[in-house]
């Protein structure tokens, strides 16, 4: 693909990565305990999968990490900041991005604009520069466009660049949402069921993208996923939640052998896998 004659090669900065520590986090809604003193750490550069039956508190944990929920007890520390007391809109500045279980894209914008919004925190020009556009405003747009094009190349969505997101197929929307989070150039990426509702081929693509992002861009990834095959294949470590408690944490191999996990979650499916 020909880029601009004037385009400079854009340097993807290796994002700043830090260790994420979840310390004794408890979250309840009224009488329902969504999370009960969950503690885990996520090391820089790893892929950590969170699994568990429906209603185990996986998404609640993710929402706590990105400050959408405020846990009643415990701390979540990233880069010496307690995320429990941070506003959601400040997290991107720390380098934390996420995708949602039910796609939450800006459905009336084009794919390109959705990804450009991912660059929002890196765009510093004020509203008056925006209104004048020509000059500094345009230069800033072009500068960030170059980064976004790299995300587009990585995720192979060149052909839908200018399409409205709302009109895209489900699988593509999931990919665009991943792209939007990636456009932020995050150090830690939270993925909430990135492969839900996809066919085998789409799942393979998505798994490949996740591995590429992790290996080539060096992004730490925490993902929630129900497909055991995928989880066991791509993740470095697996955390298992059941009724809001962390019942196991370890490599896929360890988790698979854990009797508590077999009882709570894997059950018959696991027995079949063993065969």
């Amino acid at each position: 693909m020909t880029l601009s004659r004037f385009a400079r090669p854009y340097e993807v900065n290796q994002p700043e990565r830090h260790r994420l520590e979840v310390q004794n986090v408890s979250l309840s809604f009224g009488g329902v305990n969504a999370l009960t003193s969950v503690s885990l750490t996520c090391e820089p550069g790893e892929i950590l999968a969170i699994i568990g039956p429906n209603g185990a508190g996986k998404t609640s944990l993710l929402n706590c990490i990105c400050s959408l929920y405020r846990p009643q007890r415990g701390r979540i520390v990233y880069h010496d900041r307690n995320l429990v007391t941070t506003s959601p809109h400040q997290l991107p500045k720390l380098g934390i991005a996420r995708t949602f279980q039910n796609i939450e894209l800006f459905s009336h914008m084009t794919v390109l604009d959705n990804l450009m919004l991912g660059r929002h925190i890196h765009m510093k020009k004020n509203i008056f520069t925006s209104m004048l556009y020509w000059g500094p405003g345009q230069r800033e747009e072009i500068h960030h466009r170059e980064f976004v094009e790299q995300v587009i190349d990585l995720l192979e969505i060149q052909h839908i660049r200018k399409q409205q997101v709302g009109s895209l197929a489900y699988g593509l929307q999931k990919r665009v949402e991943l792209g939007r989070a990636l456009a932020m150039n995050p150090g830690l990426l939270l993925l909430d069921e990135p492969m839900a509702g996809m066919n085998v081929e789409e799942k393979e693509d998505m798994a490949r993208f996740i591995l590429d992002i992790n290996e080539e861009w060096g992004v730490t990834i925490i993902l929630i996923e129900h497909d055991m095959g995928v989880v066991m294949d791509i993740s470095d470590r697996v955390a298992v939640l059941d009724f809001g408690r962390l019942i196991a944490l370890g490599t896929p191999h360890e988790v698979r052998a854990n009797p508590q996990v077999i009882q709570a979650y894997l059950g018959q499916e696991h027995a079949l896998m063993q065969e």
Binding site: H89, D113, L117, K125, L132, M184
Partner: peptide, 29 residues
């Protein structure tokens, strides 16, 4: 002036708030 506003990140943030405010907030708006 307004057309330019919606070509740049400030205008995009406005539209993002309309379409999905929680997602916009998580993206740093």
């Amino acid at each position: 002036v307004t057309v330019n506003l919606f070509r740049t990140h400030v205008g995009r943030a406005f539209i993002a708030i309309r379409d999905q405010d929680i997602a916009a907030e998580v993206m740093g708006v």
